[in-house]
């Protein structure tokens, strides 16, 4: 009960910021939107390639863009951590009689809410652009949940960088440097069948491949539970590593 109250206070503070400063919402959306519009046009003829397997590139691309939104938003999380450290807000939380876990969980809850809103917006834009969702509203809800969970796991990385460097630009830069290669080394922009074989092998060990596979199934095929469970298992594994590292970095900063 007490923890819930504390988490709610921290969450509410971050939500208020989001309402006050809409750029915080748009910040991670700009690039996915750009990719959505540009790639769906530039690569539209890719759907005609033998072995592509999807009717049009937009249907293929939308799940990737939803995933990318969550990844971008995840790096926003670390930048927020740096801002809070620089502004002395983290100290304010630390000297209040709060559980340490509430400070982190409140932040995670706020990150999750932001990611959910951003994913919904991207999905709405895709719908307007003509994308159709096989599993309907329930499937869209499942997509958002999956993207958010993966985003939270990814946010662990950005918070480790943030807590170690205490530098917003560096957190941003390292975020881009990590996210981009990993994203292109997945099946996000090209189906597995069309990837060079070495890249296909790399993609198999890439967590983003599993995220995209689950989202893509929900958009195009239906409730493919193997893909969904695999994605959730990969997310859980990733989260175990990144959130443990982030918690450790947090403990180091506050001691």
């Amino acid at each position: 009960m007490r923890s819930l109250r504390e988490i709610h206070v921290i969450w509410g503070r971050n939500m208020r910021k989001l309402v006050r400063v809409p750029t915080l919402l748009g910040f991670s959306l700009f690039q996915p939107l750009l990719f959505l519009v540009l790639f769906s046009q530039v690569f539209s003829s890719m759907a005609k390639l033998p072995g592509f397997g999807y009717d049009n590139y937009l249907q293929f691309l939308v799940p990737t863009i939803v995933g990318l939104t969550a990844l971008n938003s995840a790096f926003q999380s670390g930048m927020g951590m740096v801002t809070d450290m620089d502004a002395g807000m983290l100290d304010k939380f630390l000297i209040a009689p709060l559980r340490r876990s509430s400070i982190l969980l409140g932040k995670i809850a706020a990150d999750a809410t932001r990611m959910a809103i951003q994913s919904s917006l991207i999905i709405s834009v895709s719908f307007i652009m003509g994308a159709r969702f096989k599993t309907g509203l329930l499937g869209i809800l499942a997509m958002i949940v999956i993207a958010v969970l993966f985003g939270i796991a990814w946010a662990g990385i950005s918070n480790v960088v943030a807590l170690r460097t205490r530098n917003a630009e560096l957190t941003m830069l390292i975020g881009i440097l990590i996210t981009f290669p990993i994203l292109f080394l997945s099946t996000g922009f090209m189906p597995s069948a069309l990837l060079p074989s070495w890249l296909d092998t790399v993609a198999r060990f890439n967590p983003i491949t599993y995220l995209v596979a689950a989202l893509r199934a929900l958009v195009n095929e239906g409730w493919v539970w193997t893909a969904i469970w695999q994605c959730l298992a990969v997310t859980a594994g990733l989260a175990a590593v990144t959130l443990t590292a982030a918690t450790r970095a947090f403990r180091k900063v506050i001691s």
Partner: peptide, 19 residues
């Protein structure tokens, strides 16, 4: 230690809530 995005009053309320 001030949140620049909140108003002065909101900052004070936040402190009260944290306590």
């Amino acid at each position: 230690g001030i949140d620049d995005d909140l108003t002065g009053r909101e900052n004070l309320i936040l402190q009260g809530r944290l306590h």
